[in-house]
Design a protein around this nucleic acid. Structure first.
Lengths: 112, 112
DNA sequence: ACTATATGCAACCATTTGGTTGCATATAGT
DNA sequence: ACTATATGCAACCAAATGGTTGCATATAGT
């Protein structure tokens, strides 16, 4: 069972995917895949957006637990949190898997 | 390299995830995991939303190639298209994988 | 031909989203 | 103490989003 219809579950997954559903946020995530924690101003470099815009995106990713942030002196260091990615990934896997099973059943039915 | 910074690529991925970033659309996808193609009115049942709302969601999923649709008589039959899911899934995997590599390097550095 | 069903199209609306700017605050460095 | 840097907060704005409704159109069934 894919089970995305359970009350809270669907909403959690959806908001997780929604957080990934923006090119700026995807880019932020991918720059953080090297494991290096970065400050907001550091992450702002390379974008044509204002610091505030980037800050908002970072907060969204943090709220979805895709990033962890930690205060260091006067700056906020953001780092990737891959656990949640696995969570979303396994949802996609579950759907694909369901589909594969369906194909198998179909084949068995035709062949058998 | 995770490569989500290549010009068109990031946007494609982002819009794909955005399509998944809505609980109604996730629910539609999961009901279609059984491989059965369904009409719009059939899919509308079980939601408190209007047919038009569901129709719009289906069009969004179709535009993102997460669903295929086919006209059958007077109705439109929508079916899951798992290829794109694999696409999105492998992006998540790539990010996680990068992360794992980073952990390995870190461990090697500490131990070695 | 008539009726019922399935869908499409378009206008409209409220809310959310993604962005800006200005100003305040906290920490670092001299 | 003063200055520069890093961030937060809040107001504001345009555009996108998610929803509705009304009406038109196409197909199926009698």
């Amino acid at each position: 069972m894919v089970d995305a219809n359970q009350p809270g579950r669907t909403g959690q997954l959806a908001s997780g995917f929604a957080a990934l559903g923006d090119p700026t946020r995807l880019a932020l995530l991918t720059t953080l895949t090297d494991g290096q924690a970065r400050s907001i101003t550091a992450l702002t470099e390379g974008f044509k957006l204002s610091r505030q815009a980037i800050s908002k995106h970072l907060r969204i990713l943090e709220a979805e637990q895709l990033l962890a942030c930690q205060r260091v002196g006067r700056e906020m260091r953001f780092a990737l949190r891959p656990e949640r990615l696995n969570d979303l990934e396994s949802f996609l896997q579950a759907v694909s898997h369901q589909w594969d099973l369906r194909l198998e059943r179909l084949r068995d039915h035709v062949e058998g």
